[in-house]
């Protein structure tokens, strides 16, 4: 099997976010860099949130995937800067999120200086209605807020824009 960056990235699309299994780590922008050294591969990842418990599993699965493909122990290093932003999530991945029932991040990452931002209009991923309300900015995982749709009455997750 060819040991080059493009091929490694393709292999890594098999590594899913354990909490949002429709997304892979490449689409999410969690994989920042792949370095090919003579003796081993170094994959640089960045956490979505400081306390994201999925990072350990992601790191383990990256190593396991590369071990299976090349029979070698890859190194996974974590890098905080530049800080992960939802802007890095690909359009394709946003569509996958919506189909899965999670409203994708709306717009570009917001201005950090705002204290009380205008609430964004988030369309319901089930029926498409924009008649929705924010229930809580903290949802089932660090990266999600909790909304409900006032038309189809479904509660849903919104992937926060950061």
């Amino acid at each position: 099997m060819e040991r080059n960056e493009a091929h490694i990235l393709e292999l890594l699309t098999a590594v899913k976010d354990p909490e949002i299994p429709v997304l892979n780590v490449v689409d999410m922008g969690v994989i920042r860099k792949v370095d090919l050294n003579d003796d081993h591969i170094v994959v640089t990842i960045t956490p979505t949130y400081s306390g994201c418990p999925a990072m350990d599993v992601i790191s383990m699965n990256v190593k396991a995937t590369l071990k299976r493909a090349f029979g070698e122990d890859a190194e996974v290093v974590s890098q905080l800067s530049p800080a992960w932003t939802t802007d890095w999530i690909t359009d394709e991945a946003r569509e996958k999120l919506r189909e899965y029932g999670i409203a994708p991040p709306e717009g570009k990452s917001h201005d950090k200086s705002q204290l009380f931002a205008e609430p964004k209009v988030i369309a319901c991923p089930k029926c498409g209605s924009e008649n929705t309300t924010l229930v809580s900015e903290f949802g089932s995982t660090s990266c999600k807020a909790h909304y409900k749709c006032s038309d189809c009455l479904e509660p849903f997750d919104y992937f926060k824009c950061i």
């Binding site: 956490p47 949130y49 400081s50 890098q79 905080l80 800067s81 530049p82 800080a83 992960w84 990452s109 950090k112 705002q114 660090s142 950061i162």
Partner: peptide, 11 residues
């Protein structure tokens, strides 16, 4: 780098 990451959360 830690500040860059954390400020998004503290916001």
């Amino acid at each position: 780098a830690i500040a860059e990451k954390s400020i998004k959360e503290v916001t």
